[in-house]
Simulated assay, not measured.
Amino acid sequence: MSLKFHRDKLSPLNIWPGFVDALTALVMVLVFVVLVFVIAQYILGTELNGRNKAVDELNQEMNRLSALLMRAKQDINQLDAEKTQLSEQVVTFEETIESLQSQNMTLSTKIESLTSDKANAAKAKMSLEEKMAYLQSQIQELMSQLKLKAIAIDQHKSNNQVLEEEVASLTKKLKSALNSEAIKLANYKSEFFGRLKEALADQTDIIVVGDRFMFQSEVLFDSASAELEDNGKEQLKILAQTLKKISKSIPADLNWILRVDGHTDKRPIHTKQFNSNWELSAARAISVVNFLAQQGIPTKRLAAAGFGEFQPLDTTDQDGDYNRNRRIELRIDQR
């Protein structure tokens, strides 16, 4: 009896039920967190799709109204041409009437002076009067047509004014939407460059000018080379990490890109690999873009450009000026 009590006292504690309870609680918490994240993603995606659809509808409506406006302008031009043609016909008829009236007066004089030809002159007079009556009726009809054309032109001009007002309103809305996107992008750009400036504060070869970050070429590359050095890769890794953090908070409907511009000094280069400074600057910009893509920056958000020696910061021939002109510039732009 004493031996059994002693053996039970020394047996190990059974902790398995407590461990299972703790693991179950942890799984439930993780499931709840994932569920909240999925719901938030769905709500944000719905709102962004709604905004894109509204902008597309505004663009379609503006295109439709622009087509209607163009058609109305063509109709007005055609009516103006017809009005001009009718006016010319009226002038022609008036001239004809004046000519006939002159002939009638001549015939009347002949009737008075030539009694022998009175019958023939009377017939001629009657014929001229009939022609005059016919021309008068034609003039009245033309005047009626002119009035109808003038009414139609006024109606088209009124419709044209309404269309122009609608187009102006839609244009204003579209500009407002684009300005809103530009302001949002500027805010994210400011945050990105602010964080990047803090991360690279101890680097004297990295300069901030307005909305651009400038790396001196010596920080990233050897002379006449487009292959990134280890120190340059470390600096670009910091940049890529900062950009990835900021890009997570940028809405998907903002079409932004990180543009990488390569620049050289004006001293000529001619090697087996590079025939000009233009080729060297472009190759360096592409090397930076490729490295950022390897660090996880989406390729659709990257662009490379080479400017050679054609956009210098300093135009003198000092070594210090050459150093400043050899640079890689980074900026966030809107596509």
Rank of each mutant, 00 (worst) to 15 (best):
D8L: 11
S11D: 14
N14A: 04
L26R: 01
V29H: 13
V36K: 04
Y42H: 08
N52G: 00
N52P: 05
A54W: 08
N59A: 07
L68W: 01
L69C: 00
M70V: 05
M70L: 12
R71W: 12
N77C: 00
L79V: 09
A81M: 13
K83H: 12
V90Y: 09
V90Q: 11
V91P: 03
F93I: 10
E94M: 10
E94F: 05
E95L: 09
I97E: 11
E98K: 12
Q103C: 02
M105C: 02
T109A: 06
E112K: 01
S113L: 06
S116A: 13
K118W: 00
L142W: 02
L142K: 09
M143L: 06
S144H: 10
A152I: 02
I153L: 14
I153Y: 04
H156R: 15
S158M: 02
S169W: 04
L170F: 12
A177D: 08
E181V: 05
I183V: 14
I183Q: 13
L185I: 14
L196A: 08
D202K: 01
I206W: 02
F213I: 15
F215N: 07
F221W: 03
S225P: 09
S225V: 05
E227P: 01
E227C: 06
E229A: 06
E229W: 04
N231A: 04
K233S: 03
Q235S: 12
L236D: 06
K237Q: 08
K248Y: 15
I250Q: 10
D253A: 10
G262Y: 05
D265K: 01
P268N: 03
K272H: 11
F274Y: 11
V289R: 11
N290C: 00
L292K: 08
A303G: 01
A303C: 04
G306W: 00
G308T: 07
D314H: 09
T316A: 14
D319H: 02
G320E: 13
N325W: 01
R326S: 00
I328G: 06
I328P: 01
Q334R: 05
